[in-house]
C-alpha cells in the first residue's frame, strides 16, 4: 500500500491550480474605475459646455418661456447623470486596507450596482427629459421655419433620438453585465468569506 500511496501522491501532486489571483480582481476594479474617471472628465466638460452654450443663446436672442423650460429640463437631465456618476465613484482599491473591510466591500458593491442602475434606469429618464427639453426649445428656435421643416425637426428629435439612445443604452447594459456582474459576484463572495 505504501508504494501505491507514493504513486497516488505523485499523481495527486501533479494537479495544478488554474484559479484567479486576488490581485487580478483588484486590477479589474481599478481599470474599470480609471475608464469611468475618463468618462467623468468628459461629462464635466460636455455638460457645463452645452448648458453655457444654450444659456448664451438666451442673451444673444430674446427667447420665450418654452426655450427656458426646455433648456431647464436638459440641464436637470444632465445634472442628474453627473450627480449619479459622482455618487457612484469609488477611490482606487488598495488590497491592504480594503479587501479585509466588510463595509468597503459592501460600499463598492452598492456603487457598482448603482453604476448599472444609471444605465438601466436613469439613462431612460435622461432620454425622456432630453427629448422633452429639445422639443420645447425647438418651439421657440424653429418659430420662423416652414411647417415641413418644423414637423421634420420635431419628428426627428421625438423618434430618431430616443431610438438611437435606446440602442446605445442596451449596448451599454450588455457591456455592464459582462464587466460588472463578475466583479459584483466576486466582491459578494469576498464579503461572505470575511
Amino acid at each position: 500500500m505504501n508504494d501505491d500511496l507514493r504513486d497516488l501522491q505523485e499523481l495527486w501532486q501533479g494537479q495544478e491550480s488554474h484559479t484567479k489571483d486576488v490581485s487580478e480582481m483588484i486590477q479589474s476594479l481599478n481599470a474599470f474605475e480609471a475608464k469611468l474617471k475618463k468618462e467623468k472628465r468628459r461629462l464635466q466638460v460636455l455638460f457645463p459646455g452645452t448648458m453655457l452654450f444654450l444659456l448664451a443663446l438666451t442673451f444673444l436672442f430674446p427667447m420665450s418661456i418654452y426655450y427656458l423650460i426646455g433648456i431647464g429640463l436638459i440641464g436637470i437631465a444632465m445634472m442628474m447623470i453627473l450627480l449619479l456618476v459622482y455618487r457612484n465613484s469609488y477611490p482606487n482599491v488598495s488590497p491592504d486596507q480594503d479587501l479585509s473591510n466588510k463595509e468597503f466591500l459592501q460600499d463598492t458593491i452598492d456603487k457598482l450596482k448603482g453604476r448599472k442602475l444609471i444605465t438601466s434606469r436613469y439613462m431612460y429618464i435622461y432620454t425622456f427629459l432630453l427629448v422633452l427639453g429639445i422639443n420645447l426649445a425647438y418651439v421657440e428656435v424653429l418659430q420662423e421655419a416652414g411647417m415641413i421643416f418644423r414637423i421634420f425637426s420635431h419628428g426627428f428629435v421625438t423618434v430618431i433620438l430616443p431610438i438611437a439612445n435606446i440602442i446605445a443604452i442596451r449596448k451599454r447594459e450588455g457591456k455592464n453585465n459582462k464587466e460588472l456582474d463578475p466583479l459584483i459576484d466576486q466582491l459578494e463572495r469576498l464579503k461572505l468569506a470575511e
Binding site: V22, P95, L99, S100, Q186, R189, L190, L192, A193, E194
Partner: peptide
C-alpha cells in the same frame, strides 16, 4: 478564493 482571502 475564500481560503486565499482569509489567508490575506
Amino acid at each position: 478564493q475564500d481560503i486565499m482571502l482569509k489567508i490575506w
